[in-house]
Design a binder for these strands. Structure first.
Lengths: 250, 250
DNA sequence: AAGTGGTCTAGACCACCTT
DNA sequence: AGGTGGTCTAGACCACTTC
């Protein structure tokens, strides 16, 4: 006897989650609106506390909602920064003394904190690209509108930048690329590797990420015209805060 | 009296999750290894079932572990495809009849399924870019090593491609770009917008994504040399299966 | 003070996989 | 058959926010 394939009913918590997701994606619930809470869901659907929590946790882990202790669960809001892959690193940018970041944020106020500069032995992935083992490392965190959005760790070959402004907090007009140019090594070519994954715990803390927010990892290498690697920069971006744009010709 | 700020102890489930994460990231537990299960954690730490589950759910939502029904929870494995942003779309590629996908997978076997081609009215975001409202839409899913890794939806202005091979399953040697070239509109410029987010439910199904896996969304527009938009292609990639690479000059 | 989400216990039944 | 994860109930205490 052939059993007609009955599609199994999804569990209650999924059905509730689907219902709420639909309300969010359809715009019925808007940015910042409050979702029905645990108690409301318990009453409305006649379910136990844990089941209501499970339904909400689905939306939270999807990055669609954010819980606020003692207050409620809210629809999450987005306001991405457009980061231009090629234009931002053009010669005209650093050539005229523009900080690269100003091209990203287009006037929105940004801050740099947790700046940290040290001479270190390079980790393996970096050493493999830069060749040498000794590097100057510049770590920093960028915030826009008062919220942290990016972590950045730059590595420079120590023999190249020892004693220069690149080893100091204030790198001067045009930033590190202008200084590399002063040293006779203008950056000519860039290569960026882009990945996305869930954040590690320390990234969650430093970027103040709610659950369900991936990070974008950019691993960028800068080269001179004759192929010498100048810098390796690993950036961790809050994925909800960014749109990357890359333009190129066929 | 000044209370010395006591750092609050993290909850039990977090401590257990941290312990297991450390074991994974340090390599003590390797790809495919089995994690201690719910019962093991209950016994070892003297906790309730729900607490053990909560600890494991942290790792699962971080994409570090995958549960297998009736079997156990396992360390997740990765094997990303390198996708070259600029080189793959160079004239030489489609000019010599290469399918673009062959440049990505470098010989690994790939398949296209769920192919679907229809003439439709464009959704708003697409219509805004292409100008017109009528489009031919090509939907498909790509799999590598038998696992789905990418969904793709291409849109072409209907007035441009009506009656051409672009409206049929088999687009011929060199694919759609070679056909656009035949029509006198060679693609000359590309612009890609890259985002990352957690998947929507239908993407989770079509890409067979475990929890804790983000998707990378690429929204690409192809232009002729004089700036006419030829194609809008929205791609959804399993983030765990991809590394994007973009090269450009200063 | 009342309501909210955060953590945790102690059970239960189920479908599924392994042996 | 026994172990695994998946779902669910019915409680409890806590810290925090809101009023």
């Amino acid at each position: 006897m052939q059993q007609s394939p009955v599609p199994p009913e999804p569990p209650i918590y999924r059905r509730i989650a689907d219902e709420l997701r639909e309300a969010i994606l359809s715009g019925e619930l808007r940015d910042g609106d409050r979702l029905p809470g645990e108690n409301a869901l318990m009453g409305r659907h006649g379910i136990a506390r844990a089941t209501a929590r499970q339904a909400l946790s689905v939306l939270i882990n999807e990055g669609l909602a954010v819980p606020r202790r003692g207050s409620g669960v809210y629809v999450r809001q987005f306001r991405p920064i457009r980061r231009h892959g090629s234009r931002r690193l053009s010669h005209e940018q650093w050539g005229r003394g523009q900080a690269i970041w100003e091209s990203d944020t287009r006037g929105r106020p940004y801050t740099v904190d947790d700046m940290n500069i040290e001479r270190e032995t390079a980790e393996e992935a970096v050493a493999r690209v830069l060749g040498g083992a000794d590097v100057w490392v510049r770590r920093r965190r960028y915030s826009v509108d008062g919220r942290p959005v990016q972590l950045s760790v730059s590595h420079f070959p120590a023999d190249l930048v020892d004693g220069t402004a690149i080893t100091r907090e204030d790198t001067g007009l045009g930033g590190v690329y202008a200084r590399l140019n002063d040293l006779g090594h203008p950056p000519a070519h860039f290569s960026e590797e882009v990945r996305a994954r869930m954040p590690h715990p320390h990234e969650t803390v430093l970027l103040d990420l709610p659950a369900g927010t991936p990070v974008i990892v950019i691993f960028r290498t800068a080269y001179t015209a004759d192929g010498r690697p100048l810098e390796v920069n690993e950036m961790i971006l809050d994925a909800a805060s960014y749109v990357l744009q890359y333009d190129f010709d066929a």
